[in-house]
Every structure is written in structure tokens, then in C-alpha cells.
């Protein structure tokens, strides 16, 4: 799945992935910001206080049919890619851990997390947003972080 370099202004494409090099401004492997697939999830999990990164499924379940179709198409392509590496694909619970929507000028990144009981949740959430932003730099991203679970003590 790739994001068009110069999409038509009215078209907003949805991609499901956890792969930074597919997003605007992160196109060339081997450049300083290029990292392996899955590294965004790892970056979020490295934030102190984060216990889980949940699939963003509840969000894309609410997407309009057209966007959902794109999403499913992307999932199919991703699933094919995953199969080539021996990983499972296609199960909604397999992902995406991050949902990114890009229109060529900006990228929205959605992350759902769980937080530990000993952490200060608002601080953790802000740290996650900063980690996502740093991960995609120099690309400009809008980050949506949702806490879906606070682990019991």
C-alpha cells in the first residue's frame, strides 16, 4: 500500500499500517528516519506507562463505506504481504495498530493504548503523542491518542 505522492485535493486516502516509510516524507529506505515495519508500535510501547497498543478497529468500523472499501483493499494487500513473510493477515484483531490517513499535505495518525495503574495517564498520553510525532519527523502529522484501558492495580 502506498500513499500517492500527488493525490487529487478532494481525495483522502486511508491506509492501515504500522510502516513509517509508506507515509509522506518517509519514502526512502536507508535515510536517517527509515525504520523497520512495526517500529511505530515499538516506539509507542517504549513510552513509560504504556502497557498495550490496541488495534484501531472501533474507529474504522465507523468509516463511510467508500473509506472502508479502501481500508479493506489495503488490508488485503497488506495481508498478501504478510503472507509472504509468513505472518497472518486479514483478521481484524491483527491490526491495524495505527491508522494513518493522508491527503498529501498532512497525515493523521490514530493510536489506542492501555496505560498502567502506576502511571499518570495524561502525561503518558502526551508522551505517546510526542513519540509518534518524533517517529514521523520531518513529516507533519496530527496525532490522535485514545486511552482505552487503565490497568487495575
Amino acid at each position: 500500500m502506498t500513499v500517492p505522492a500527488q493525490p487529487t485535493p478532494a481525495k483522502r486516502e486511508t491506509v492501515r499500517e504500522d510502516v513509517r516509510e509508506e507515509l509522506p516524507g518517509n519514502g526512502q529506505a536507508g535515510q536517517p528516519n527509515a525504520e523497520a515495519p512495526g517500529s511505530l508500535r515499538a516506539a509507542v510501547l517504549r513510552v513509560e506507562g504504556v502497557t498495550d497498543v490496541f488495534p484501531s478497529r472501533p474507529l474504522w468500523q465507523r468509516l463511510p463505506a467508500g473509506a472502508l472499501s479502501l481500508l479493506q483493499q489495503a488490508a488485503g494487500q497488506r495481508g498478501a504481504g504478510d503472507r509472504s513473510t509468513g505472518q497472518q493477515g486479514g483478521d481484524p484483531d491483527d491490526g491495524p495498530l495505527v491508522e494513518a490517513r493522508a491527503d498529501g499535505s498532512a497525515t493523521d495518525v490514530t493510536v489506542r493504548i492501555g496505560v498502567g495503574a502506576d502511571a499518570r495517564t495524561p502525561d503518558v498520553v502526551r508522551a505517546v503523542a510526542a513519540a509518534v510525532r518524533a517517529h514521523f519527523a520531518p513529516a507533519q502529522v496530527s496525532v490522535k491518542v485514545t486511552v482505552a484501558r487503565i490497568s487495575p492495580e
Partner: peptide, 9 residues
């Protein structure tokens, strides 16, 4: 800390 972000629980 960034106006473009949406942080919720």
C-alpha cells in the same frame, strides 16, 4: 501540547 493533536480517554 500540540493544537493539531487530539488526546482522549
Amino acid at each position: 501540547e500540540n493544537a493539531a493533536d487530539t488526546l482522549t480517554e
